[in-house]
Structure formats: C-alpha cells, structure tokens
Write a protein that binds this DNA or RNA. Structure first.
Lengths: 172, 172
DNA sequence: GGGCCGTTTGATATAATATAACATTTCAGC
DNA sequence: GCTGAAATGTTATATTATATCAAACGGCCC
C-alpha cells in the first residue's frame, strides 16, 4: 500500500482524534475553494462540518434537522444545494447504497471513492486502491466500455467490529 | 476471460435476440425456484418478466405502472414484495446508483454483481470479473475488513455508444 | 457609495422512492 | 374440506429528492 493516504491516516472505525479530522477537513476545504475561486459560504461550510460529525454517512434530512436549529428557514433544498456544491468540489462523497453523505478524506487528490462500510458501526472507510482501479479498468476495457465514474461500496465488518479471533489474514 | 458467462453471452448494449434473454431468464427462474422449493407465483414471475423487458434498470414505480394494467389492485407493496422475493432468490439485482432493478444474467452461479452502466443508452452490463473480486478482497483484507457484499457500479459509455474512433485498447 | 448582474439562499409545493400495518385470499399438506 | 403459513390486497405514511419562483447577497464597475 503506497501513497500518502491510508498508511498515515487512522482507520475511520478505530478510536482516533476525530476533532483533528474535522479541523483538517475544513482547513483543506477552505484552501481548495480559495484556490479554485469557489465560494465556501457559511452555510456550505457548516453543512460540510455537519457531514464530518463522524465517519458514518449521514442522510440529507438528518443534516436538515441539525441545521434547522441554527438556520431557521432551512428546508430540503437548502441542504441539497449545499451537498451538491460540496459534491461538485469533491469535498464529500455520496454513498449510493445508504442514500447518505460522508466527508472525503483526500479532496485534493484525484480519487474515485471506494468504501468499506461496516454494517455494525456504520462507519465508511474510504479507500483509493489502485489495484481495484486497475481491475475495473481492465474488466471494462476488455468489453470496450469507457469508464467515467466508479461506485465501489463494500459492505461487511470493520476490524473494530469483527470478533477478535476472526481478524486473521491481513496479508497484502 | 474465462467461465461460461461473458464470453458466450451477447453484450447487453449490442443488438441481440432479446426475446431469447427473456425466455431463458424465465426458464432458469422456474428451474431454480422449483429446485429450491421457492414459489415463483404468477405475480412474481410477471414482475421478473417486466424487469427483463430490457437490460436497462427499471424503477419500482415503472413496474407498478406496467403491472397496474393487468393487476387492478397493484400498489407499491405489491411490486416491492415481488422485487424482494426476486432479490432474495438472486434473480434480479438492485442498481443502487439508479434506484433501479435489472435481471441477473447468471442466477445459478454465485456472483456479486458488478455493472457497467452506460450513461447514454442506460443499459447495465453485468460482469463477474474475478480480478475485481480479488482486488477488492485484497484491499479489504489489508485493512482487516471482512467483506460480505460488494456494490460495484461503473458508469461510462458502452461500446455501442462510444464514438467509433475511441474504441481502442480492448486489451486483456 | 450606488447600480448592475450573477450567485446564493428562502420559501412553497410536489415528485419519486420505499415501508408499516393490518385485512383478506390463496395454497400446500394433511 | 380443514388448517396454518405464505402471499397478496389495501390504506396510510415515511423517506428521499427536485421544481419553481422570489428575495437577499456579493463582487465589480463606475
């Protein structure tokens, strides 16, 4: 496993200083949007912060409920528009199998969004595994299919939620 | 590319005798359900047939509309229950990114559902590529994650919808 | 600062997807 | 035919997402 990503980043499902995740995600968002001339407004930034409450994908209406306490007129379009902006900037991902949204762990790098989603704790661990990319590219190319986007959502049990004795074969 | 699957089966997006797809799918469903003691009732069989109208994933409410002409009391639960049964028997797949359903091309074999979905013609080409399976297994195992189900939905352009001059690199 | 214009947000309504809960019917096995 | 479990009918409602138009905001030119 190479690259600056997974090796140095704590597993989403494991105990970690999540405050740091949030602070870093917001700082990166500020930086990227400034660089791109995109307007990370107060509302959008707040929605991003709410998405980053945890690594568990959150639904639009959950966000709306939390937002409603601060923004009086908040309605579905309020949150969906913010989410659209954040998706467009690559700051969050949509988890299709959950109709939920989760913060992107590497919005400054190109990556396609591969997720390991624990059915027990719910946390979504983002991968950017070049082997998966390659396998998909090859499989598609063999059939003459031109890949544009990939949705890879793997459901199962994360290391924290697996029974201890099953945690074998971490082999690379 | 090995196995009895993709090599002999026509590409969903290409011109083919689709009537044969439907007949075979229904025959296989009859056979599998009989073997399993599962009841492929008239309604469920008809829903399966409607899903197999094409290789384009179809929404539950589309099915409901088509069904409504024949089954007077058809309501959302009617179709969702039939779909649940068919999913449970592995006769159809749910396409998460489209909230749609599509016939399974190999319900008698184990397979996990990998799809190439054309954004132009809409058809979903089902793969069962062991390289993708392996890449996912390895990526997950490296992080101690126990895979239970995979959702792989690749969006792009199918060979029929690609501009001719772009159809390069079909390399295996 | 004031006017202009494109973007963002507010506000209301409604569409699209999915499930809960309970009544009735059907059907395989006896 | 009886019976019990499974399947379907029926009504209501939950959940997710978008359309539409109006108002407010924010950069920019002068």
């Amino acid at each position: 496993m190479t690259g600056p990503g997974n090796a140095t980043r704590p597993l989403a499902c494991a105990r970690h200083d999540h405050g740091r995740c949030v602070v870093e995600a917001l700082a990166t968002a500020d930086r990227l949007c400034a660089r791109r001339g995109a307007r990370l407004t107060k509302l959008r930034r707040r929605v991003l912060e709410l998405v980053w409450t945890s690594h568990v994908p959150v639904g639009a209406y959950d966000l709306l409920r939390r937002l409603g306490r601060e923004y009086d007129g908040a309605a579905p379009p309020t949150v969906y528009r913010a989410l659209d902006f954040l998706l467009g900037q690559g700051l969050i991902h949509r988890i299709e199998s959950l109709n939920g949204f989760v913060g992107c762990v590497g919005p400054d790098q190109n990556h396609s969004g591969q997720f390991l989603i624990c059915r027990d704790c719910g946390s979504a661990l983002e991968l950017s595994d070049p082997r998966i990319d390659r396998a998909i590219s090859k499989g598609a190319a063999a059939l003459g299919f031109a890949v544009e986007r990939q949705t890879v959502e793997i459901a199962g049990l994360c290391p924290s939620c697996r029974p201890e004795n099953e945690e074998s074969s971490h082999a690379e």
